[in-house]
Design a protein around this nucleic acid. Sequence first.
DNA 1: AAGATACGCTAACACTGTTAAGACGATGAA
DNA 2: TTCATCGTCTTAACAGTGTTAGCGTATCTT
Lengths: 250, 250
Amino acid sequence: MNTVSTRNPARPARPTGADAAATPAARRAREQAALREKILAAARDLFVRQGYEAVSMRRIAEAIEYTPPAIYTHFRDKSELMRELCRRDFETLAARFLRLRRVHDPVERILRAGLAYIAFAVEHPNHYRLMFMSPPPCEAEPDSECLRGIGDPEQDGYAFLNFSVADAITQGRFRPEFRDAEFVSQVLWAGVHGLASLLITHRDDPLINWHGVEKLSRGMCESLLRGMLTDPRSLDPRTRKAPKPKGAAS
Amino acid sequence: MNTVSTRNPARPARPTGADAAATPAARRAREQAALREKILAAARDLFVRQGYEAVSMRRIAEAIEYTPPAIYTHFRDKSELMRELCRRDFETLAARFLRLRRVHDPVERILRAGLAYIAFAVEHPNHYRLMFMSPPPCEAEPDSECLRGIGDPEQDGYAFLNFSVADAITQGRFRPEFRDAEFVSQVLWAGVHGLASLLITHRDDPLINWHGVEKLSRGMCESLLRGMLTDPRSLDPRTRKAPKPKGAAS
DNA sequence: AAGATACGCTAACACTGTTAAGACGATGAA
DNA sequence: TTCATCGTCTTAACAGTGTTAGCGTATCTT
C-alpha cells in the first residue's frame, strides 16, 4: 500500500534542471506515470494471487481506489495491462540468460539456461502461464509494437538457446542425429517448458507425488542433453574438462 | 446435421423386449438421450473449432436450435459439458495405451506410449488443453464422481507409464541415478507434455520454424530415454535384442 | 477573472453463465 | 372424451464481465 506518493509535501527541492521542468505539466506527467505504476502494481498483485481470468477490471479499480474507466486512460484493454507486466518480467528472464553468456562451455550454458528457465517459471507462474501457455496475443498483425514487444523476449530466449546449441554443434558435442540447431533447440525448449507448465498446473494435484523442483529440473535437462551428446561424460563436472581423451587442451 | 432422428416413422419394428419397453416413457428417455448427444456433438464441434472460452452456452443452444436453459436439463454447467467430452476422448487415449500392453520390452513400450501421447494431443488439441493445460476442475472435493471421472484417465496414463518404468528398472535398464520409478515417470511425462503443449499453443507462431511432429516426438522420447538408460544402444532397433555385449544371442 | 483542457466519474451497452417461474403439449386416469 | 398431472422448453431476469460515450469538475493558461 501507498506505493507511490503522488503529492509529497516533504519533497520541496525542485530540480529546476534544463529538461526536468518544474511546471504543472511536468507534475501531471509524474502523477500520470505514478498512477500507471499503481495500476500495474495492483494488477500484478491480483493476477499473481488469483490468476488473470479471475481478476476483473472492477477489482483492480477497487484496489487502487479509482473507477474502472480510469484504467483505460493508461491501458488500451485488460490484455495490454497483462502484456506490460509480462514484458517486465521477461526482462528479468532475459537478464538471467545474459548472465550465462559468461559460461564458456556451451553445453553447460545450455544446462544452466534450462535450470534458470524452469526456476523462473516456478517463481512467476501466472506470468509464465500468460506468456507461454496461452495462444499468442497477436494473430496476424505484423506491426512493430506486436513483434517487438511480444516476440522479442521469447525470441531472445529462443535465440540464446539456438546460438548455444549451434556453438556446441560446431564443437562436435552433439551426436550425428542432432546436428540441426533449431531441431535440438525445439526439443530442449519443449522439455523445460513441459516440466515448468506441468508444475504450474498440477503441482497441487494430490494424485501425483511430485519430486523436488531442483531434482526434476536437473533430471530433465541432464537426461535430454546426455541423450543428445556425443560424449555424455562431458556433462559430469569431474570429467567435463576432458571431453576428448586424446587432446589434453581444456 | 440431423445426427439423431427422434421420431423416425421408417422404424416400425418395436422391440417389445423384456427390458426395452415400448412405452412413451421409454421413448421420452430415448429422446432425452438423443438431445443430450446432440448437445455434446454441437459443443464438441464448437469447442474444437473455437476453443472452450470463446464458445458461449447461447451459441451452443443456437446450434441445436434450443434455448440456453434447455442445456441445463442435461448438464449442470458449462464445465461439466466439457468434462464429459474430455472423458470420452480420454477413453480413446486409454485405449491406445492399452494396446501397448502387448509390447514386451518395457523401454520400447515407454517410447511408444510417449509417441502415442503426443499424437493424441496434436489430434485433440482443445481437449488436451482442458485436460492437462488447465487447473484441475475439482479443488478439494474428494467425492467419487470427481476422483473417478477426472482423476482416472490421467491416473491411468500415469499409472501405465509408472508401471512400465518400474518394469524397466527391475530389468536394470536405467542408470543408477534413475532408479526411482515415480521420478523417472515425472520427467518423461513432463517431456512429452512439453512438446504436446508447445505444439498446441505455438504451432502457428511465425517466429518458430517447427520441425515435423513425428521427428520432434522421436527426438524428445529417444533423447530422454537414451539419457536415462544404462545401455543407450537398447533403443536402437538393430541392437535392441542384445542389450548385453556378452550374450551373442540374436 | 475568464476560457481552455485534461482527467476521472456516471451511466450505459453488449456480452457472459446461470436460474426462477411460467406456458404448453403430451400422458395417464376417470 | 375430459380432466388433472407431469415433464420439458421458453421467457425473463440476475449478477457479473470488458469496454465506451458523455458529462462535471477541478486544474492550468492567458
